[in-house]
Design a protein around this nucleic acid. Structure first.
Lengths: 158, 158
DNA sequence: CGCAACATATGTACTATAGCAAGTATGAAT
DNA sequence: ATTCATACTTGCTATAGTACATATGTTGCG
């Protein structure tokens, strides 16, 4: 490999690390306001239900890597908090479906909206060419990195 | 503002959101292996001590936004886990300094190294011009976003 | 010295998370 | 129909995190 490319790669890695810190700041700021309403593990459930729609208890437990019995009581708390609702499954009477309540959906939306707003606020300061550079760079990186699996992002609860 | 710039901004926001998800995947993957050794709150302490060096108990408690008395027992657990060590302050006998043990430093390094490796692995797949585009875009974004405050990134424990 | 301010630790208590074992109700299979 | 598997809940237990009030030791100051 050419020496120039190696150098470039080093600079790109450092730049990516710096940007990753900046993006973490964005994510953290968007998450902070709801952290007194939900815990991070609870937010994970909101993420799952937002992405996949209503699911069986066991299904969610599995996605979170949690014990079913643990999750049952975990769900109790979220139901008590008004974030999710249990309902009977139309298919089988032994299945219990959980879904977001309006409040739960609102909490999730609050975070994603805040994230979009935060990013927008940052990009607002940029000129046209800089904007274009950011868009291009991020798109290339995202394509190369690929979408993280649901399991992966859930590690952090986001 | 020109219509073209508005459009550009929208595309840049979406690109940034996608990249932020990709980066979250990177971060989550790098964090996962140590999550059976330390909890996320405990990892926050490792981050603080790595960034600032040995600190007084109260200093760390404050940075984490924790009650001093809570933090005392929290520290007990981390000492028991061999991640940090208490030591007498040279300046004052009522102060207690905590610092990373070798194990604690290793856990932190494991995560940051993994992060660097992950990013490097992604960038490896890119051609010279793409690399350059990524570096430029990320640098511009990072400069515009600014370094997140320590408090902010600690929300997520990172 | 004596007392206030400070730094940390302890007593106590509560919530969240989490797992194992056992129980209950339902569905499926022979 | 009886038996086995599935889906969920509950009893019990343990640990982590957190806070408030209080105790202990230390420092600085009048």
């Amino acid at each position: 490999m050419a020496a120039r490319t190696v150098q470039l790669r080093g600079a790109a890695i450092e730049g990516t690390l710096t940007a990753s810190r900046a993006l973490l700041g964005v994510i953290a700021r968007s998450l902070a306001p709801v952290m007194d309403t939900v815990t991070l593990p609870q937010f994970r459930v909101l993420v799952v239900l937002s992405n996949f729609g209503p699911l069986r208890m066991g299904e969610v437990a599995q996605r979170l890597g949690a014990n079913q019995s643990s999750f049952s009581r975990f769900a109790d708390r979220m139901v008590a908090g008004g974030l999710i609702a249990r309902s009977a499954s139309p298919g089988s009477r032994r299945e219990v479906i959980i879904s977001l309540t309006e409040d739960g959906a609102r909490v999730y939306a609050e975070v994603t909206d805040a994230r979009r707003r935060e990013i927008s606020r940052v990009l607002e300061t940029l000129s046209g060419p800089d904007l274009e550079a950011v868009r291009t760079g991020f798109e290339i990186f995202a394509r190369a990195a690929g979408e993280p699996s649901a399991d992966e992002t859930l590690i952090l609860g986001i």
